[in-house]
Design a protein around this nucleic acid. Structure first.
Lengths: 369, 369
DNA sequence: AGCGGCGTTGTCATCGATGTCAAGGCAGCG
DNA sequence: CGCTGCCTTGACATCGATGACAACGCCGCT
């Protein structure tokens, strides 16, 4: 029994050529049933398994897809990874994962390169880099689907949430509940989704005629601990916020324990992304919910379609988000009275119209050119 | 400019053989500095990247490690995955991930096989299968490190937490706080860690002279929702538990919202594994904490060492766990008085001795033969 | 001058699969 | 019987890298 059984070993036992064994293994029609049965017996007897590395080299492409995310431990990306892996597995593809970290966006191109030299059939990338020109050459032979944001400098398939709109909805929700000092808590600005959510925050402020106060913007939190410290500073300022838009799960995991631990559950919170126990806390946390599993699956499907039809036009899929009111986002600022905010003179639209506008934003999924 | 630059292309430009280019790429000493510089220039000019699939085929092993876990979305495994990927990346290795799911332990061997045919250099496996004999042959060429439990039927490297001891500590903690109706909430019994934690639970009961009541054992929860339903049944029974040992994070994510949502925060809880917000809830959740990052890193290091020394003896690394009292596990049962439990006549050891005993369990890490 | 040793370089086989295309066998038709 | 077409099979090159080892040149020593 040789250490590794090859086509040749099977060919000897079955008294055919290795090519015929290959035909049987790959379901090629050009084999007689008699020969086929004989080869199958030999395959079973020897426990033959094709060497997929050899096949990949010959074919020029591995049956593996690459996934690049910021962090595999991040709950959002963990669930996205899981969805991608499951979709790939259903197609007989393996998944090679790689993380970029949150310190050096330029690592993205190195990480992607390390997947390309392994001949991955395709890539799903949650981008952090400023410029995706590095992918221009590779994309002729390796399809790429971007998740969470559009690439810069190239046209590619993508699966997105509208971060700007979501940031605007989250912030608008707080403003609609009377808050005039709304803070933004976010990760590094080199993270494109942070920038978009911040832009949405600012657009909501502007839309309500509120001045943007940069002392209410705390970005750069690379961990839950840093988010916690940043929130502490926000709340300890001269004119502290009465509400906080926490622009990703990681920041929320720093902010919420702080508020609960320091008895500041009076501060209104909208969290971008749901997280465990958010609805069990008192008050339960209002969230912008977008499902990483939906994103992961959509990205994988998009990639499979691209593999089948390399020359089709690039397509962007926008997946829906929704605001889930649970309590923390509906808290009123100190001194505010119940009911519609009477100070709001710039926008006479009734509340129900605004709710509908939000529902429109929250439900809309579709295609973006 | 050819589509793909090979050693041969570089060799032509540099006027050397492909073998010399290979020597330069691999840092072989047998190249003159003059030749080396000339080749480097050609490499840069052509943008050459070695084809790692070709190398893998020739060498007989890919520079990829495989990781097999139950679910990539599970927070515990997500963090373990992240730690493994980072450790691998530091070594220039890629990571191929695969999930088994929680329904069919036998899928493990199929999943492992799909990694083996891709010539992974080594495997890290969080096992679910009943028998690891399927790995006996492969292990001669592909090192395996098991995480979380020892394999069945083969001797292999492993990185473990002592699930039985941890289950015993968790349950003992509840008993020490006066509970006599302690329930066990767990996943499927085909999951070996569930079985060990249940055994620990039973051992704690026995140690305190308490009869095991099977109506207090709820296993089979495949999701947080199912855990929630199981907990509902436990609490709705004729003689409901006053305390619950939730034997994994997933069960806790079902149980804790139930308790909070139904006003049953009087039920004492110890959760195996920490989770986000556990310490922000009221009462904060007492947990058995073991760090998946420590496990992941230890597993990766063990695998790297195995790759360097394939013939060394198998080794098991036991990583520490600790009980983190936060409130939920220290709740007293209804009608209990404060202070030491006067009903405990079988064990006259004072509380401080027992605390020390637990600290001993919680701190101990080391090697197991 | 001749020999031996050492360092560098190159040739060629190898890894294990698949693609390309020729060859052989058989059936049908004139 | 000879020719043509179709189907099956096999030979051999290919994928792109590395391992094994021979060949060559140079230097130092006798």
């Amino acid at each position: 029994m040789p250490e590794r059984v090859t086509l040749r070993d099977v060919a000897v036992v079955a008294d055919v050529s290795a090519k015929t064994v290959s035909r049987v293994v790959n379901g090629d029609a050009h084999v007689t049933p008699t020969t086929r049965a004989r080869v199958q017996r030999a395959i079973t007897e020897l426990g033959f398994q094709p060497n997929l590395v050899a096949r990949s080299l010959r074919v020029g492409r591995a049956d593996v897809i690459g996934l690049v995310v910021e962090s595999l431990a991040d709950p959002f990306f963990a669930r996205l990874t899981s969805a991608v892996e499951q979709a790939a597995h259903e197609r007989g593809l393996a998944v090679m994962v790689s993380s970029v970290g949150n310190q050096v966006p330029e690592r993205e191109s190195l990480v992607v390169e390390s997947l390309l030299v392994r001949q991955v059939a395709g890539l799903i990338v949650a981008p952090m880099a400023q410029d995706h020109g590095y992918l221009a050459g590779a994309r002729q032979r390796t399809p790429v689907v971007f998740v969470d944001r559009l690439p810069e400098g190239i046209v590619s398939d993508a699966v997105l949430v509208d971060d700007l709109a979501a940031g605007e909805v989250a912030t608008g929700h707080l403003i609609d509940h009377g808050h005039r000092r709304v803070a933004f808590l976010g990760s590094e600005l080199r993270n494109p989704t942070t920038r978009l959510r911040l832009a949405g925050y600012r657009r909501a402020l502007a839309r309500h005629g509120l001045d943007a106060d940069e002392s209410l913007v705390a970005v750069g939190a690379g961990s839950a601990g840093e988010a916690r410290s940043a929130a502490e500073q926000l709340l300890g300022g001269e004119r502290p916020p009465t509400a906080i838009f926490s622009s990703n799960m990681r920041c929320s995991l720093g902010l919420v324990p702080l508020l609960h631990g320091s008895g500041r559950t009076d501060v209104a919170v909208v969290s971008f992304d749901d997280f465990p126990m958010a609805d069990s806390l008192v008050p339960a946390v209002t969230v912008i919910d977008h499902d990483p599993e939906v994103i992961g699956r959509a990205a994988a499907e998009r990639l499979f379609r691209r593999l089948e039809d390399p020359d089709a036009d690039a397509e962007t899929v926008v997946v829906p988000f929704r605001l889930v009111p649970r309590g923390s986002g509906e808290l009123r600022p100190p001194g505010a009275t119940a009911g519609p905010d009477r100070e709001r003179v710039q926008d006479p639209v009734p509340d129900d119209d605004r709710e509908q506008d939000m529902a429109h934003h929250g439900v809309e999924g579709g295609r973006r050119p």
